[in-house]
């Protein structure tokens, strides 16, 4: 693929999906859970600091069989959004998820996660309580969790805050869901230095469900009703339920050891890496014997021993951060 700025049509299409994924009437995690599962019992708290309403979770029945359900929860109006912090978890949210996954592991229940967050909350309080550690620990736990995991992006899959509950044996997405390494606004403000370029950034990052399927990041797309999930939450939930049953049917049939091996291989294989045989660089010592003796005796003016800083020197202290998120 040749690199070129995204076409206006691609920009428009990507931004339309982002707006659908963020639609204020889009069914939230709890709207879907109540339609799909029976006997959902929401459990609260991380047993350490507090309960984070931006992540919900607990055991439920699906076709009469127990599963552990965990998801981000956005609000539906201003008040509930403030309560839910717009679905952006603090560290304690991820630690609650970890606690619930441990319980699922103990009882041998499969885990179903529903992703819908703009991202982990980046505020000072979250930093103070170890936001990065909480996300990292969640991811690590999921990579080795001894029970099957099915993750579904139902709205916004916003970066580390989404991935923290998004490692799965199967990863699915609703048709108008999006998944990205950083919010389009964040990407635009770093790479374009202009947040209003968010639509361009959305297109460049290829964050739609179709793009993600093509990139091999997700395994399947669940169709939404015409015009988006907000038009018919019942139909959306029915489609999701069907997809969950099929996915659980596949992953629960695999032996735990094979499941973990496959999960590892899947994660290990993600990305595009060009590999060539090259002679590794190393510091070159072409000093003559006289020079070496001079060095040994620390004669002023004798050339120094070759060092790695000559292979990869410092310099050009530009502080550009043109890639990180």
């Amino acid at each position: 693929m040749t690199a070129a700025p995204p076409t206006p049509r691609a920009v428009e299409e990507a931004w339309r999906r982002v707006q659908l994924a963020r639609h204020p009437q889009r069914p939230r995690t709890m709207d879907l859970v109540s339609r799909i599962f029976d006997d959902f019992v929401e459990l609260h708290g991380d047993r350490s600091y507090r309960d984070d309403p931006a992540i919900v979770g607990g055991p439920a029945l699906l076709e009469g069989r127990p599963v552990m359900v965990i998801g981000h929860q956005k609000g539906t109006d201003t008040d509930s959004n403030i309560h839910r912090n717009f679905g952006s978890p603090h560290p304690e949210g991820f630690r609650k998820a970890q606690r619930l996954m441990r319980l699922a592991e103990k009882l041998g229940m499969p885990v179903v996660t529903l992703l819908d967050t703009a991202g982990a909350f980046p505020g000072p309080a979250a930093e103070e309580r170890g936001q990065a550690e909480a996300i990292a620990a969640s991811i690590k736990q999921m990579t080795a969790l001894q029970v099957p995991i099915v993750a579904v992006i139902v709205g916004e899959g916003g970066s580390g805050g989404a991935l923290a509950i998004g490692v799965g044996d199967e990863v699915l997405a609703l048709e108008n869901a999006v998944y990205s390494v950083i919010s389009p606004e964040g990407c635009a403000s770093i790479l374009w230095r202009a947040p209003e370029k968010a639509p361009e950034a959305a297109a460049a990052m290829r964050m739609t469900a179709a793009d993600q399927l093509e990139l091999g990041v997700i395994d399947g797309i669940i169709p939404e009703p015409e015009g988006g999930a907000q038009h018919d939450p019942d139909a959306t939930a029915r489609a999701l339920r069907e997809a969950l049953l099929a996915a659980l049917g596949r992953v629960t049939r695999v032996e735990p050891e094979a499941l973990l091996m496959t999960r590892y291989a899947r994660l290990r294989g993600i990305g595009v890496v060009n590999e060539a045989e090259v002679e590794p660089l190393r510091p070159v010592d072409d000093g003559t014997l006289r020079q070496r003796i001079g060095r040994l005796l620390r004669v002023p003016g004798a050339p120094r021993r070759p060092r790695w800083s000559e292979v990869w020197p410092s310099g050009d202290e530009s502080t550009d951060n043109e890639g990180g998120a």
Binding site: K140, S159, V181, L215, R263, L267, R268, G271
Partner: peptide, 25 residues
């Protein structure tokens, strides 16, 4: 590091899991 490389999109995001999985081992 500034973090995950935006230019590779979610493939970069998934490197968080790729680099973390060996730690469990």
């Amino acid at each position: 590091s500034g973090g995950a490389r935006m230019q590779e999109g979610t493939l970069s995001l998934l490197q968080l899991a790729k680099t973390t999985a060996p730690l469990a081992r």
